[in-house]
Nucleic acid binder design. Sequence first.
DNA 1: AATGAATGAGATTTCATTCAT
DNA 2: GATGAATGAAATCTCATTCAT
Lengths: 212, 212, 212, 212
Amino acid sequence: MVFYSILISFAPRNERSFRFKMIDSKLDKRTLILECTLNLISEQGFHGTPISMIAQRAGIGAGTIYRYFANKEELINELFKDIKRDIIKAMLNNYREEGTYEERFMHLWKNMVYYFMEHPKEFQFIEQHRYAPYVSNLTREESFMILSPIMMFFIESKRAKAMKDLPLYTIIALLYGPIVSLLKQHIDNNQNLSTDRINQAAEACWDAVKFK
Amino acid sequence: MVFYSILISFAPRNERSFRFKMIDSKLDKRTLILECTLNLISEQGFHGTPISMIAQRAGIGAGTIYRYFANKEELINELFKDIKRDIIKAMLNNYREEGTYEERFMHLWKNMVYYFMEHPKEFQFIEQHRYAPYVSNLTREESFMILSPIMMFFIESKRAKAMKDLPLYTIIALLYGPIVSLLKQHIDNNQNLSTDRINQAAEACWDAVKFK
Amino acid sequence: MVFYSILISFAPRNERSFRFKMIDSKLDKRTLILECTLNLISEQGFHGTPISMIAQRAGIGAGTIYRYFANKEELINELFKDIKRDIIKAMLNNYREEGTYEERFMHLWKNMVYYFMEHPKEFQFIEQHRYAPYVSNLTREESFMILSPIMMFFIESKRAKAMKDLPLYTIIALLYGPIVSLLKQHIDNNQNLSTDRINQAAEACWDAVKFK
Amino acid sequence: MVFYSILISFAPRNERSFRFKMIDSKLDKRTLILECTLNLISEQGFHGTPISMIAQRAGIGAGTIYRYFANKEELINELFKDIKRDIIKAMLNNYREEGTYEERFMHLWKNMVYYFMEHPKEFQFIEQHRYAPYVSNLTREESFMILSPIMMFFIESKRAKAMKDLPLYTIIALLYGPIVSLLKQHIDNNQNLSTDRINQAAEACWDAVKFK
DNA sequence: AATGAATGAGATTTCATTCAT
DNA sequence: GATGAATGAAATCTCATTCAT
């Protein structure tokens, strides 16, 4: 469940992350490796992407990757975490705690849809690797560390009788589940996501959870 | 998009299925291999499940697997197809074209949830392998061959003004997406799916698509 | 050196060979297996011809082959020996110990060329497997058992000062070597062997060995 | 037809050959692999020479071989091409376009015999793999690219009425065929090739093709 | 720090041979 | 006698990881 797993991984940046924006060739290379990994995995699949191919694409030596990541598992893992951070960031883009609950929901929900539409590789990667053993372990560890603004929004909405009094996780399923399905249709099945379809679906999602 | 891909694969049973219940050691072995594969993949993941391990678990020689499946890809593929057939069968279990549209929806929707709850390995496998290259090809090939009762139900519901006039694929996303999310919570995150939660979610899904 | 190895393998038929012409289903099957083996090897190469394929082509069970041949090596071996016998037989076809030495040489030499032209599979098989370890051992064992009419012809020709006084094996090389080369050209390189080319070459070979 | 296929492969040396004499560990390893392959194949036969054995003999890891050759077929192929180059080089050793045609023929012909006598493994390998599918393709591709000095020599000899007016390929068969046969006797059958026998055979070959 | 050649464990797959039917 | 399913040893090949340069 990505929505959930995204929310909970809104953890404080570690040392590495702090240096993230510095113009630091070491971190540039780290980012480069992650980008090449994402691109190659979305092109060739996980099986078809050996470390040597990532190195070649990145224009570096294979051994160099091991200066940034302990092993292939950690590389995938870090990529997963980085993408989750980006998703959260995108979803909260321009989000203000004002307006009606419906308006705020629409903002968050559509932000996510548009982010995924603009980043299909990230979407596919997250969906594909959700079940990988290392990812789920990680997720669980981080699970109760953070309560993100989005979780807060749901809780507040329920309290304010704007949303049905459903279990938090049921709400997440009702709102995030359709996003995944719509995007898979969009990406895989050529069931194009027009602005109209997005708006209709957003409304329907709200109908599912809004207080009657 | 599994809901969809499941629907369209409601093809007539092939020879194999007919002979299925015969006490036929050859078919027993085929089934045995598929079962061991499913179990091992759900335990060890796809990467952690070499052919040799499947053979060992099944108590047969590794080469024997190649008498039943041309290669590992075909084995996974056949497993995927078999599970899809079972899911469809389960969803249509006791389904009758009578009662209100809401009642009929509840029947289909809950059938699917319960099937997945009772078959978590199958659920995980289907979700995990949706992106595998062979699967998407398969899906597309079968895509327009069959119009299942479920698709018919959606179309009829719209015509009868029981459901909103949304694109068919939007409806599917709104109804199937939450199932996937709920089940992932159930299986991965220990967010248990009680009968209450299921009923609440079913109602909310209906709220999302029902004609207002 | 096939010419040589052919000559010396003109051994008395063993029990099996005696029954060869009987209408004996066991022997028919043996012959069938050998024929299919030869055909498949010439089509698919030795590597591409597993026992199971031979069995399939012959329309019999794989296990059955093991009733006729102890193992694959023996099968190839027997095929080799059978073909050698046929070649000898063909070369001596209509051969009479009369006429000039040149005439008798022409008869033998052309018989062999024509036989190979009509049996390219046999030719290729013999050439291909000359080096197989089992074959060379065999050849050596049989080597000094038989003095064939052809060897006799060479010896007599030398004695009669019709041929140069060259070592027997030199004569064989001078006469058989060009046959192999010509046939490889014919089969591989589309350097067609016309009657003219054959006659010219036969004459040239005779020029090589005839007494001056 | 090797004589021919040798002649036509007298291509300009590639990069590899240039760097050949440099003390370059990478090329040393490539050469090492080829040498071990040739030795093992001549000892154990093609079937009896798995990659792992080559690696062991070369004292390197099995995977290393795949850094130099894409697969086993390419390894054999490269070995074939390398040997062909060496043969051509040997045959033209000290060859000058002067003297009588007979003298020049003797030089070329004996050079080849002596090279093969000194390199029996190379001889056997070339003879053994002439029929391999990849080799014949190769040969054909290169077929019309090069007109070697040897072909020129034959053509010129015919024009000068030093040789009979036979088709070029017939001449090749008459001269190369006996070489193969003689060497097989020498190597397989212990029919030793003395200088006398070589000289006699060379003369006889010349008798076969010389203008009368 | 960066490289990429080398490694070798391990994966997939083939196939000669056996043996229960 | 015939069969062909089953076997499993062995072959080819891949690739994550190491380490000398």
